[in-house]
Design a binder for these strands. Sequence first.
DNA 1: CATACTATTTATAATCT
DNA 2: TAGATTATAAATAGTAT
Lengths: 198, 198
Amino acid sequence: MKMVTDRSCRQVTFSKRRTGLFKKANELATLCAVQIAIIVFSPGGKPFSFGNPGVEPVVGRFLNRGDEHHDGQQRPQRLPSERLVEELNGIQRRIQLEKKRGEALEKALARAKASAAAAGGGSDSLISRSVEEMGMEELVEMRRRLVDLREQLDGRAVEMEASSTLLLLSNKSESAGDSRGGSWGGGRRRRSVAKWRD
Amino acid sequence: MKMVTDRSCRQVTFSKRRTGLFKKANELATLCAVQIAIIVFSPGGKPFSFGNPGVEPVVGRFLNRGDEHHDGQQRPQRLPSERLVEELNGIQRRIQLEKKRGEALEKALARAKASAAAAGGGSDSLISRSVEEMGMEELVEMRRRLVDLREQLDGRAVEMEASSTLLLLSNKSESAGDSRGGSWGGGRRRRSVAKWRD
DNA sequence: CATACTATTTATAATCT
DNA sequence: TAGATTATAAATAGTAT
């Protein structure tokens, strides 16, 4: 499944698939009585959206800003601790995912080459508990550790091109359950300032 | 087309259709190289999302600039709490990148392990333990190994081919936050961006 | 950017393991 | 509870307007 190269064909494909996607979303909302929002920008940059009961309520709920409109720049005085917890939960899940990846890789690695010595390590099992159970101080501490990890990552910076991000759901999987998919990193981001680090 | 009355059937239908919808969205993003975000709450109230390149940038583009699509603008008066969230988002993205790197590595390994068959042996099962039991130092070490392997195998490019990925983790998402103004007085950090082939 | 037409591909509801 | 199977319904690519 590759990008359609011809601009005209791409636009046609976009139009039709967007229609189909919104239809699917509408069916999902109807059949299951759930809130859903879709935002998509056409190849030409034009925004299209679908929402049940509307885009903004759903996005607001997702961002923990249900009581706020985006017409103002202010957030509620109450800090986004709920959001923080969600973000940390996401990080936790992703670390777990990375671990699963590492497991598969490790098996192949054992067959293919010898690896360097393992690092020892006292583990505080900081990630063991649910984020919801942690106090703010612990959240801040956890953030500190994650930042440390991030700085390690910065040592060998890697970027994925936006076009390389992909998600295929067609194959069977060993585990199953609910997925909070998406948020595929790697795209160019407005807020991210790209800088090199040696 | 009416709402499925049976709760169980409704949940099943939701799961299936959500999977299909996200797949469609991914295909649309791939074929047409467009930004798209989907947010949906399950019948049980759990949030699910898909985004290319991520939910936040798409939502941000939609909310902040409406029908416009100029680049380079920033919202004025960013609060410290927003920077906190951004910082966490950055970390989250980096971890995502690590996961994707692992995926690519896995494929590269499959192609290159024949030639890379150096020494055998050392299968220290560092990664066999759960992340919950690992300290951050070990996580960092785990990552370092992946990078080492990549650098060995990546004289040529590691292609991001179609890889099957399912984010499958049952986890609670509704969370109660502790509202303490826990700002850490953090400054902005540099973000590293590099190319996949570095 | 949208839509009509049709051959073909794909998703899915019901069912079963 | 998840996954596999399959007949059926739906989406879509190619093309034209």
